[in-house]
C-alpha cells in the first residue's frame, strides 16, 4: 500500500452557515493521487484550482466530502498529528526569538512536549544545528522581524522539520522571494530532503522549481481541481541548477507549461 492514497476525492467549501452543500464552491472533484514513502512530489496548476485545498485534505485539516484519503495505511479523519507545514507567509511569532520559533512544534508534539522543559538545553542545541544547516548560524537569538524575507523562510523550514515529521507539506514556500534567494533555498530544501528522507508535497507556481525538486510533478486542472497529468522527473540527485538547462528538461518544462495553459483556458 502506498504511503498516501487519495481516491476520488471531492471537496466543497460551504460559503456560509446552514446552506446546502450544493451552494458551496466545488474545489476538488474526483481527485486521485498516490505517493510512496520518501517521495518528493510537486503540484502545479492554474491559480485557484485547489492545490492548497488538496494539501489541507491530506493533512486532515479539512475533511473530504466524498472519496477516501489514507496516510500511512490509516484513513484520515482528523488532523494528522505530526505533519510539518510551511507557507508562502513565514508567520513566525514576533514575540519569540528565531530559535524559540523553531522550537514551537516540540512544545506541542508528543513525546517532545513532555520532555521539553526538562531537556530544553538539548532541544535548543538541536534547533541551533538545524538553523546552521539552512545557513542561519548565529541567528537563533534574533527576533524574526530582524531577519530578511529569505531568512524567515529558512527559519520556517526549520520549524516545519524540527520534530522530524514523516510528511512535509509546503505551500508555495518560496513564492514571495526573489529569483536568486529562491534558487538558493531550493538547494537548502534538497539537502534537507536527502538528509531526512521524509515525504514531501510541494505546491508551487514555478515550474522550474517543481522540476528541480520533485520526483514526480502533478498537473491539476482548473477548478474543480483534479490531477490531469503526472510526469516523472529522471534527474539524478543531488541535482544542480545547470541540469535545468539541459535540452530534455527545458522541453519538459515547456510541455508542463503547455498543459497548464490548456487547463487554464479549458474552464
Amino acid at each position: 500500500m502506498a504511503f498516501i492514497e487519495i481516491e476520488d476525492v471531492d471537496l466543497v467549501y460551504r460559503n456560509s452557515f446552514g446552506h446546502e452543500v450544493s451552494d458551496g464552491t466545488l474545489a476538488l472533484s474526483g481527485t486521485n493521487l498516490t505517493m510512496e514513502k520518501g517521495e518528493f512530489i510537486a503540484l502545479v496548476g492554474p491559480s485557484g484550482c485547489g492545490k492548497s485545498t488538496l494539501l489541507k485534505v491530506v493533512s486532515g485539516l479539512i475533511r473530504a466530502n466524498k472519496g477516501k484519503v489514507t496516510v500511512a495505511g490509516e484513513t484520515v479523519t482528523d488532523p494528522l498529528k505530526i505533519v510539518g507545514m510551511a507557507f508562502q507567509n513565514a508567520s513566525l511569532l514576533p514575540w519569540r526569538s528565531t530559535r524559540e520559533n523553531v522550537l514551537l512544534p516540540l512544545e506541542i508534539v508528543e513525546p517532545h512536549r513532555q520532555r521539553f522543559r526538562a531537556e530544553k538545553a538539548h532541544y535548543e542545541e538541536l534547533a541551533d544545528k538545524l538553523l546552521e544547516t539552512v545557513g542561519l548560524e548565529g541567528f537563533g537569538d534574533r527576533a524574526p522581524w530582524q531577519l530578511s524575507g529569505g531568512m524567515q523562510q529558512r527559519a520556517q523550514l526549520c520549524r516545519a522539520l524540527v520534530h522530524e515529521p514523516d510528511l512535509l507539506l509546503l505551500d508555495e514556500p518560496f513564492g514571495a522571494l526573489d529569483a536568486f534567494t529562491r534558487e538558493e533555498l531550493w538547494d537548502v530544501l534538497q539537502a534537507l530532503y536527502t538528509d531526512r528522507k521524509c515525504t514531501v508535497m510541494l505546491v508551487t507556481h514555478d515550474l522550474r522549481e517543481a522540476v528541480y525538486l520533485a520526483d514526480t510533478v502533478y498537473v491539476m486542472s482548473a477548478r474543480p481541481g483534479r490531477v490531469i497529468l503526472d510526469k516523472k522527473i529522471d534527474m539524478p540527485r543531488p541535482r544542480k541548477l545547470e541540469d535545468l538547462y539541459s535540452r530534455d528538461i527545458a522541453d519538459l518544462i515547456q510541455e508542463l507549461r503547455h498543459h497548464i495553459n490548456v487547463a487554464r483556458t479549458d474552464e
Binding site: 489541507k56 493533512s59 486532515g60 485539516l61 488532523p79 494528522l80 498529528k81 505530526i82 505533519v83 510539518g84 507545514m85 510551511a86 507557507f87 507567509n89 508567520s91 511569532l93 514551537l104 512544534p105 512544545e107 506541542i108 508534539v109 508528543e110 520549524r159 516545519a160 520534530h163 507539506l169
Partner: peptide, 19 residues
Amino acid sequence: ELKDVLRALGAKERDIVIK
C-alpha cells in the same frame, strides 16, 4: 496559516490559545 501549522502538529484549541 499559523493555525494550520499548529493543528497539523496535533495542537488542541487550548494550545493555540496559550502559545
